[in-house]
Amino acid sequence: MTEQETMTAPGGLIEEIPVQDLLPRVIEKKIANWRLCQICAVTLQGLYELSYSFADGYEFHTLRLVIGSDEEVPSISQVYDCAFLYENEMRELFGVHIQHIAPDMQDKLYRIDTKTPFAEKRRG
């Protein structure tokens, strides 16, 4: 399948990129008028997998970052205003170190008692 065909297939294309490529790739998407669809995080053994999904028409493209639990990630809220909700949520629930989120809700988006509940897994 070509890249174009994969992006329109169900589930879209998932592409892993290094952290330093995040902002340049996101700015490319913004210039090409892609819509920010969602951002989510998954906790794996000592690592975080962050997925930034964009949509253009019916094409769906996810940029994937795999980072260590102490690594820092730049915020994309200066490029996409609506990213602040997703990034505040990731920081509050997962403990992902995201720098310069605008606006920064200081871990008070959900105002929960438990600190970073998703940062570790408990098998039950």
Partner: peptide, 16 residues
Amino acid sequence: PSIGYVHRGLEKLVEK
């Protein structure tokens, strides 16, 4: 906005 009143944290139930 100030949300969190309805936050249950149900996505973590995948572990249980």
